[in-house]
Amino acid sequence: MTPTPEQDFDALVESDQRVEPRDWMPEGYRKTLVRQIAQHAHSEIIGMQPEGNWIGRAPSLRRKAILLAKVQDEAGHGLYLYSAAETLGVDRSELLDLLHAGKQRYSSIFNYPTLTWADMGAIGWLVDGAAIVNQVPICRCSYGPYARAMVRICKEESFHQRQGFEILHTLSHGTPAQHEMAQDAVNRWWWPSLMMFGPPDDQSPNSAQSMAWRIKRFSNDELRQKFVDMTVPQSQVLGLTPPDPDLHLDEETGHWRFGEIDWSEFFAVLKGDGPCNQDRIEHRRRAHDEGAWVRDAASAYAEKHRARSEGVA
């Protein structure tokens, strides 16, 4: 008996092979991927805003060139991901419309403001750091185009985290005022970074299905713990202290145990009550609308040349 498409799909996933765009897949799998990849793509491009805020005010030409390159990378990451989503039969412009209408989400972390230059350090070190921990397992996601996009992204993220660490390290070992600025940035970004891994496992209803489909490889809490274990020793090198009085090394397991996360804050920001939710979407819509003439001009130019070359032939 020939296997049904569903049995073929299950066997692919089971044997850790990749599902490719033209394969049969369950509708739920497709929908989950579209939602996740779109949210991921939106996060990349919305994430350009908090850092874009400081490009014009970077303290040196070197820092400015680096920050500009990082923000350009994030635009690239967005595009890799929109391409991956399109292999599932949706259109990039459709996804952008959903973002602009507030019908699709982006990571809550980008709803916090960037108040000082040290925030560029804290974002690179903590936010990109958390993103890396989240993204590395997705390089082995069961959906081929998403996994491949993630491989490219992960290669590029490493510089993002290192440049952030360098900024904080420099500030932390500078004047007392600079050190204080670095500590203040860590104080503000630490908890939101831990929230980037999503709600605790017992409140994460879709996780089990995503794990079964091998879209997700580790639970939210596992990834969060991994991030804390990697980050706390780095904070010691920085000479900066995570704002958590309960943080301590569990000698038996070797894990850093951290205090209670304020999930009410997380859900409030998710619902739209973060400090910058409104700004981020408005800015995004404005950039899109104000860029319309560029897209129109490119279309008109292409059309003119097409007509001309057809006229010649």
Binding site: G76, Y80, E86, R92, A149, A298, S299, Y301, A302
Partner: peptide, 23 residues
């Protein structure tokens, strides 16, 4: 390496350079 949208071949090449060969 991936895909992109562009109005014509020239723009497609330019965008491909910026998106896929930044390093």
């Amino acid at each position: 390496v991936g895909s992109l949208h562009a109005p014509d071949a020239t723009m497609a090449l330019r965008n491909a350079r910026d998106i896929y060969t930044r390093r």
